[in-house]
Every structure is written in C-alpha cells, then in structure tokens.
C-alpha cells in the first residue's frame, strides 16, 4: 500500500521523506531479522562448545574461542552413537511417505476432479472434515487400533493411515480442476482405459504441483514427533526427532550429540530451502490457496 508522496510540487521534500521511510522500514525489519536469527546463531555457536558447558551455562551468545572446537562435529561423524541410524530411519520414512502420499492422493484427487458420481459432494465434505478436526483427538483410539491391527512398532503404523492425505487431496483437486476435460476425452478416443488416462496423461502434467506437496509432506514427515513416538517402541526404529528427544537428559556426553545433532537436523533442510525456495513457500502455505 504505497502512498504517492513524491508529488510534483515538492520533489526534494518528497525524496527525503521516501528515503526516511525506506530507512525506518529497513531498520525495523533488520531488528526483527536479528531476533529471528538469534536462536539459529545460538545453536550454531553451541555446536562448537563442549556439551558439559551447555549443561553448566545454558544456551547463550557468549563467544569464547578458547572453549570452542570441532570436537562435536568429529564425534558426530566418527563417534559411536545412534544418530545416523535415526537419520537413516527418518530419511527412509520420508522417502516412502512422500512417494506414497503423492501417488495415492493424486489418484484420489483425480477421481474427485474428473468425474461426476453419486456421493461425490458428500465424500468431499469428508475430506474437509478430516482437515478440520485435529488429529490429536483420535490419538487414543488410533493407538488401540494400530495395536489391534498388529502395526505397533512398525513404520506401517505411520505410513498407512496417512497415505490418502486430506490436505494433499484438497490441493491436487484444486490443481486438477484447471485441466481441460478434453484431455481425458482425447485419451479415451485413443483407447486408453480410465486408469491409463490417469497414469499416462494426467500424472505427467501434474508434476509442477508435486513439488509443493512433496515439500509439505516431506517436512511433516521429517519433523513428526508425537505419533511416531507413540507407536515406535523399539530404539532401532527411532526417527531423528525421537532420537534427539531421548538425548535431552543431561547424562554422559548426550549434550555433545544433542546440540550438533539438532544443528544437523535442520542444516539439510536449509540447504534444500535455499535451492527450492518458491516451492517451499507454496507448499507450506498451501492451506490458504483457496482458504
């Protein structure tokens, strides 16, 4: 919302005013920027400090080169600990979840977007209903159900309930409604089956919308704590968030690993973010598309 202050009557005064506005805005946002970056700076700094210091002094911005070293990083990469196992578990879970959620949700979304059928509107209301009700409410019955189905302590307890993901279906359906109906019809003329049309014609042109949803679902998978924590009992299956959480007790050299490990859990995401910024922003704010 710009006010046209640079009027012809007072060019010099207008210019100074603009400059002052620019500088005030900039100063304000730089202060805000520093506040936002502060926790990142603190954790980066702490990753060079011995864990014992963190336990003793807490997290602060003291910059003391004499106590700082690369020891934590060396320990992270060469020490005996479970960090990379957690990392690997999280990575596998992320890959499987993203691929399955995208495929299954796109499949469902195409059904909603391309056809007219009985109960269609009713079923779509169900999609919205799932998006509206927080998952936490269902924690107890879901926990019982997963136990009854014999999925406790298995990744399937995390993967299967989330495959047809409501928000992803919603987003894809929105995207697919813009695809002209002539396209599937052309496929039918060429002798494609209904499913062939989806896999050969629709799926390839959906690619642009995949990036945003891959990021949204990937982020959710990578950062998910509560549900995996409840259903994965075996330490060998722990994901990175669960593993890091177990380190939060100040015993042994846990804090050496906790800090540098936390740093390393966000580092790859930041690198990805720098490369695919617009997709990240599109994915993470997808909810408001047609809010």
């Amino acid at each position: 919302m710009g006010t046209a202050n640079t009027t012809a009557k007072d060019p010099v005064g207008g210019k100074t005013k603009v400059l002052i506005t620019r500088i005030l805005l900039l100063v304000f946002f730089i202060i805000l920027f520093l506040l936002v970056m502060l926790p990142f700076y603190a954790i980066t700094l702490a990753s060079f400090k011995p864990g014992a210091d963190i336990i003793k002094f807490g997290l602060n911005l003291d910059f003391d080169l004499s106590s700082m070293s690369l020891k934590n990083f060396v320990y992270l990469f060469t020490g005996k600990h479970s960090y990379w196992m957690w990392f690997k578990n999280s990575l596998i879970l992320l890959l499987v979840q993203v691929v399955l959620v995208l495929l299954v949700s796109a499949f469902v979304a195409y059904g909603f977007a391309a056809y007219e059928f009985r109960f269609k509107n009713f079923l779509f209301v169900c999609v919205l209903l799932i998006m509206m009700v927080p998952f936490e409410i269902l924690l107890m019955p879901m926990y019982v159900l997963v136990n009854d189905l014999g999925m406790y302590n298995s990744f399937s307890a995390i993967i299967i309930p989330g495959m047809a993901n409501a928000s992803t279906i919603f987003f894809f359906r929105q995207y697919l409604t813009s695809i002209p109906k002539a396209l599937p019809d052309a496929g039918r003329v060429d002798g494609c089956t209904e499913y062939g049309i989806f896999f050969r014609i629709i799926l390839p042109i959906m690619k642009p919308s995949f990036a945003a949803m891959a990021i949204l679902n990937g982020m959710n998978s990578w950062n998910n704590l509560l549900w995996p924590f409840m259903v994965l009992g075996d330490g060998k299956k722990f994901t990175l968030p669960i593993g890091l959480k177990t380190l939060l007790t100040p015993y042994g050299n846990n804090y050496d690993l906790l800090i540098v490990g936390s740093f390393f859990a966000i580092f790859p995401i930041f690198v990805l973010f720098l490369c695919f910024q617009s997709y990240f922003i599109e994915g993470m704010t997808a909810g408001a598309v047609k809010g």
Partner: peptide, 19 residues
Amino acid sequence: FFLPSLTSVVVAGTIFRLM
C-alpha cells in the same frame, strides 16, 4: 522470517529450553 517454520518442534524446543 520463514526459516524458523522449517525447524521441528524437537529442535526448536531444545534450543528454547536451553535459552
């Protein structure tokens, strides 16, 4: 300003708990 939303609750919680 978007960066913090990329950190998990676990990491953010750890940082703030110690701060």
